[in-house]
């Protein structure tokens, strides 16, 4: 029983992290039809930046803030320089971002080396809390990540469905000419979306750098996680990402905990099974 609850908690908190990671990807795609396959590399870059800030200043919150902001700026630059011109060519954009991920991966290797790092948890958040019914206590920080993910999810959903900005964004995607005619600068809206999506991945990278160690290869791992999440949940939908994160996180952890040698295959089999019945993902729309 202890093991079951423990594994479930692991799965849930990991699902929270996966949600943070994949939400930026799906936000940008859902609103702009641009898929960023350098997503894993962005995640890792944010990890390095926040780690270095925390290492120099001893201020964890500053590290997370700068990690998220610098990625926002970096992502916007990538969008402006490399992607904007081809924004309506989905495949070409996806391929360019794959090229970006290659360069980033090697660049980070050259600058930060192949060692693994992990950002220290701030002192007052580093204790473990006892879980009723089981004997082992559980790290408080991991539970906070889960709550953080839930807050971000609700925030994003409210932003897109309930605010004027959300309405402009949704309208701008569906009918660029119409929204422009209303005097709204659609290009600027797109830049802001890309910025926001990149901030989200930067935030996820800074948080993830605290819960798990990171280093060379982490980019590929998290690209795979986010692909699994959005493929299962359905690309472009916040709810889909939530469901996808839950399934990949929880089932993945039970697989690792109970059938470690088959863990990779179990997640993969789940993905195939879901796609055989719903090729667009659980909440994805057919386009």
């Amino acid at each position: 029983m202890t093991r079951f609850i423990f594994t479930l908690l692991n799965g849930l908190t990991l699902a929270g992290l996966y949600f943070l990671v994949a939400s930026g990807l799906t936000l940008i795609f859902g609103l702009m039809r641009v898929i960023n396959l350098a997503h894993g590399a962005f995640y890792l870059l944010a990890g390095y930046i926040s780690w270095n800030v925390v290492d120099k200043t001893d201020n964890w919150f500053l590290g997370v803030l700068l990690g998220a902001l610098s990625l926002g700026i970096f992502g916007t630059l990538v969008y402006l320089i490399l992607l904007r011109k081809f924004q309506y060519e989905e495949l070409r954009v996806a391929l360019i971002t794959l090229g970006v991920s290659l360069i980033l991966a090697q660049g980070m290797l050259a600058v930060f080396g192949g060692e693994y790092y992990q950002t220290s948890i701030p002192e007052n958040l580093s204790q473990s809390i006892p879980i009723p019914g089981i004997e082992i206590s559980y790290p408080l920080f991991r539970i906070l990540v889960l709550f953080l993910a839930i807050i971000v999810a609700i925030g994003l959903w409210l932003f897109i469905t309930r605010t004027r900005y959300g309405a402009i964004i949704r309208a701008g995607v569906d009918d660029t000419a119409m929204v422009s005619a209303l005097g709204i600068n659609v290009q600027a809206v797109f830049i802001w979306i890309f910025f926001l999506g990149s901030v989200l991945i930067g935030f996820a990278g800074s948080i993830g750098a605290t819960t798990n160690s990171f280093g060379m290869g982490t980019d590929g791992d998290y690209l795979l996680f986010s692909l699994q999440v959005v493929i299962i949940g359905g690309l472009g939908s916040i709810g889909g990402v939530a469901i996808g994160s839950f399934l990949v996180g929880v089932i993945g952890q039970f697989a690792v905990g109970y059938y470690p040698t088959l863990s990779g295959v179990i997640t993969f089999a789940m993905l195939v099974l879901i796609l055989a019945f719903r090729p667009q993902g659980i909440l994805g729309k057919i386009r």
């Binding site: 989905e90 692909l227 088959l262 295959v265 993969f268």
Partner: peptide, 27 residues
Amino acid sequence: KTKGVYFLMLTLAVTLGLYSFANSAQE
């Protein structure tokens, strides 16, 4: 059943799935 970017992502996930299988199925 899929096209375009979905097809690209799906086939990438398939390959990476074989990667984790090859890594874990030591026997």
